[in-house]
Design a protein around this nucleic acid. Sequence first.
DNA 1: CATGAATGAGACTTCATTCAT
DNA 2: TATGAATGAAGTCTCATTCAT
Lengths: 204, 204, 204, 204
Amino acid sequence: MTPIVSEEYKEKKRQEILQSAHVCFAEKGFEACTVDDIVARSGMSKGAIYNYFKSKDDIYLALMEGQTHKSRNEFAKAIAERKTALDKLNYLIEAYLDNDPNDEENKGHAIVHYEFSLYSTRNPKLKKLLTERYKDFFVSLLIGIIKEGQTSGEFNKELDPSTHADIFWAMVNGATLQATILENYQYKLILKEMQNLFLEKLRQ
Amino acid sequence: MTPIVSEEYKEKKRQEILQSAHVCFAEKGFEACTVDDIVARSGMSKGAIYNYFKSKDDIYLALMEGQTHKSRNEFAKAIAERKTALDKLNYLIEAYLDNDPNDEENKGHAIVHYEFSLYSTRNPKLKKLLTERYKDFFVSLLIGIIKEGQTSGEFNKELDPSTHADIFWAMVNGATLQATILENYQYKLILKEMQNLFLEKLRQ
Amino acid sequence: MTPIVSEEYKEKKRQEILQSAHVCFAEKGFEACTVDDIVARSGMSKGAIYNYFKSKDDIYLALMEGQTHKSRNEFAKAIAERKTALDKLNYLIEAYLDNDPNDEENKGHAIVHYEFSLYSTRNPKLKKLLTERYKDFFVSLLIGIIKEGQTSGEFNKELDPSTHADIFWAMVNGATLQATILENYQYKLILKEMQNLFLEKLRQ
Amino acid sequence: MTPIVSEEYKEKKRQEILQSAHVCFAEKGFEACTVDDIVARSGMSKGAIYNYFKSKDDIYLALMEGQTHKSRNEFAKAIAERKTALDKLNYLIEAYLDNDPNDEENKGHAIVHYEFSLYSTRNPKLKKLLTERYKDFFVSLLIGIIKEGQTSGEFNKELDPSTHADIFWAMVNGATLQATILENYQYKLILKEMQNLFLEKLRQ
DNA sequence: CATGAATGAGACTTCATTCAT
DNA sequence: TATGAATGAAGTCTCATTCAT
């Protein structure tokens, strides 16, 4: 018996399922989203989905695994293109300004993301994974920019890059979370004020 | 004729349920935790629980209400005792410094809180409730302090109190969320740096 | 130990419960009406109710038992007062004209009545009881009137009184049922036309 | 790809559920009959039943729909075959003569039907549905026949067809209800006398 | 490999009845 | 007797997963 379908075909199917699942999770939340929802959105059969993933949890996990890799490349490229540390930082903030959770799609992303993060809290392995991802990507991205700014004289040399990287992401996450949870949150305004606050501090 | 049980008795029972529910929610998450879990942990019957609360949502709401009330009173009292706006703000931050999610109990609180907030996202009524609670308590508390500081000359008069109230809470929430989700997060350090950042801005 | 409360007191309480139960059953139906509903309406405690009746079914049964006796006397008296058979028959129909199920209260009565009748269907004893009640009261009332009319020359002597009694009540019940079940049913109009139909036949 | 089971198979299953439900409803009443009862009688799983019907109400509605359809087709065909309006009307009455609730099966039908009608009384949507079904099928069927008779000169042209349609069905329902509720009710005799009564009126 | 009907445990919630006070 | 908090079986419905075709 030789395999009847190619690996590419299978990978394509897998991605289709993941894509559909992501939309569904975002719309209704992981627990509220049913396998039938995913079936409906993907247009595949339930049996097919269970051929590619062994459980609903499994889909969730695969989805998160995949997500980690995504923005990494985008960011890395865009940042490499900017010259000054200030430009890089501003680019980053602007990228998040576009991420306003008052837009339904962004809100969906945010919800899935936070939900999964909270879920990971009860799974040491996942928690470790998320922590590593946070450090290896988000923190080190910012540390790089701050250090660059300090070297070039743009930023105050006495600030601790690591601490301020954490502060930066805490602010972004805080604003995003509030905007996700609350009605009529002035996300963009808040984020811009945070930008001022943060840059003033860095350039002091 | 005579009431069968005292009000205290009933309040005690209520608190027992709330306590048990809180532990369960923290352990498994709000949605994954079943009423039967709460039954098992509380040692009461299912009917008894529904005598005190009309739904699972209702239990959570009461839990939150309780926390808000507790904070409200503590905060109100402590803040009234401080003289200057600066003292008041510092008190608030110190209260949150004690709230370090690296302590298991605080982490439990935080998880339940964020999870339910996310859950509320898909229930307009709940979302509205959370938004009102945020505005009526958290935002207005801070607006009061900022305005007081502006009147007394402690704080810069040109800052918008409302926006900075939002910024303050976004920072606190951001730090708490990160500390909840990530391993070995330097919660206290980050929060203190945020304190500096924020106060410098206000006093500019 | 002598009894502490009088028999009258107990009977009064019983009647109060029955009264409240009747309203509740009418409003929501026997199955949908809860003991708590009856508690709420009667203002008595749940324990008290169970002191007087041993179950919800028991209340229902007592209620029906009581109802049988009620209208009997009213009708008997009013009919005795009319002189001619025609007057008597017209009185009866007019009484039912006032019973329009488009009025909420009448509808309630009707629903409870029919619901119970259907319920009795599965209980031979009750069914027998209802049948006897129907014959001893409703049918014989009408047979009496018809025969009187035949003797006095008002009505056609060749008609079978018993059959026409059945027809009369089937028509009244049919119209009442339809009006109970359907929206915007022209109960009064239909009943009047039935009156014409029936009287024409009798007087032919 | 290929459908797993044929449409006939599914229709057969549906009918099996309906059949089982009908028996259960008749035995215990619509409200007292549980989904588990239907499960037990049908030998299927609960999930299977909810695959075919979305609620217990839905099962009843389908049952009713089915009966209406059956009657509709039978009636339509049989009535089209008769030439005169009188023949048509007589056919209709004869069909109901066969429906004698003294036969257990017919009684079951009747009980379920009336019980559900009463139940619908508290559900505006259902009530509306029942009213529409009554008008669209039962009333309009009879209006058609009466008008035809008026055109052909068989029936009195001055009678209001709509009112007399209501009268007709109230009489049929009244007789059926009485026969369902009471012991030894002379259903056939009463219905025949009603036929005379009604036809005399129409032909006057 | 694909299909989707079938399964049945389990979710939330209700409510008739009991019984300690 | 009166009270009403406690009980827990039972109700409807959902849904992740399996498996015969």
